[in-house]
Design a protein around this nucleic acid. Structure first.
Lengths: 233, 233
DNA sequence: GTCTATAGCCCGATAGAC
DNA sequence: GTCTATCGGGCTATAGAC
């Protein structure tokens, strides 16, 4: 078999895989996750059930593939925004708002994603070993948020801040799952208020009276962060 | 049919139901939730599959019944503790530690509970309409925590504080699902540190410079609390 | 009217032929 | 790499026992 043949085989496989994923996402957002059967996905995509399972070992893997796609999409959108905004408050709010933009088209089945993400054994869990790469990239993004901000930040805090902001962002994403308002309006309000609050707190962290509280917060972060404590958690 | 007959019938039904639930919980914690089949539960309990489904409309309902049992158990244990402790810090920590005690025996399948609890449609979701009663009772418990504490608390904050503490407690319970340390040691550490931090912040909320931040926090709480905003969220 | 048993549907997942 | 056939398990319909 010539290299060219094997290449076009691979290409064909990728197209088939892409086709199955796209079809699945359409059906998920049209009918919901539970309601969409693997048989329906396969039929709609014009392949057999066996083929669908050849590319995606389980129905959950379809959701995972979609999620990984989103992480990259969001990083691009967020970095574009960070070029323009320089205040901490606007940078925090902006990154979170672009996250909402990215998630919006598939809000219909976000509960299915959340259900998987909450399971400690699932690769979709934001704290899992399998998510290491996605998590690192996401935290790096928050590092840029902090680095590029014009505000002065207390140096002890500066080191931990990206992970703390990432954790907050995970919380807000979780909140948005429950948000049934048009265009995630309520979550967007929460984002603006939270960015206001967070930027104030970060600036306050340098004040002399705040020392003990700051130390305590950093201590909690250090002891409790599950994604750093290794296999036992 | 005499009333006595119908009473003993009902009794028998209750015993059967209890028997099925107990058997299910044993199997869940021995083999895990996913691994335990309804057929196995029915066989172990000495009833038919149909009978099991007569008492529990779905496998998830078994988990729900167990959860409701825990809520009551915890309220009793917590109130006993509140008799003894009078400082805010110890009251917060104590209520959370008793919560851990209550959850401990079934930690093995807590991920299965979390998966259901995270789903906006599930009655187990802490913010759902079906959870209204359990939620109200849980918030009432936190109200006792605040009321019975010897510390002075700023009056604007005092009104919102029980719900805020309840929300924090939900977060800590979620954290404990991921905690694989012996006896939830890491979560218990987090609880002690969090109680320290929270009691400090609550006391600080009265300081003059903190005014704008306090107002902002209360605003966020008011706008974002999903369990109060009615059917649209 | 309260409870139990059986047979079988549906769908996620797998085995194995080609 | 794709297919068909089949399995396992959650769940249901329904017929009856008491």
């Amino acid at each position: 078999m010539s290299p060219r043949d094997s290449l076009s085989r691979t290409r064909k496989g990728e197209r088939t895989k892409e086709n199955i994923l796209t079809t699945a996402l359409e059906l998920f957002s049209k009918d919901g996750y539970e309601e969409t059967t693997m048989r329906a996905i396969a039929e709609s995509a014009g392949v057999s059930v066996g083929s669908a399972y050849y590319y995606f070992p389980s129905k959950e893997h379809l959701v995972q593939a979609y999620y990984m796609r989103l992480v990259k999409e969001h990083a691009d959108a967020a970095r574009e925004l960070l070029e323009k905004e320089k205040t901490l408050r606007r940078r925090i709010a902006g990154v979170l708002q672009t996250k909402m933009d990215t998630l919006e088209p598939y809000h219909r089945f976000s509960p299915a994603i959340a259900r998987q993400g909450i399971d400690p054994e699932s690769p979709l869990n934001p704290f899992s070993n399998e998510s290491y790469e996605a998590r690192t990239e996401a935290i790096a993004l928050w590092e840029e948020v902090v680095e590029g901000a014009r505000e002065r930040i207390h140096k002890d805090l500066r080191k931990e801040l990206p992970e703390m902001l990432w954790l907050c962002s995970e919380g807000i994403v979780l909140y948005s799952v429950y948000d049934r308002t048009e265009g995630r309006e309520r979550t967007r309000q929460l984002i603006d208020d939270s960015a206001d609050l967070l930027s104030r707190l970060i600036k306050m962290a340098g004040l002399p009276l705040i020392g003990p509280v700051r130390k305590l917060v950093l201590r909690i972060m250090k002891n409790a962060a599950p994604w750093r404590v290794g296999p036992q958690l």
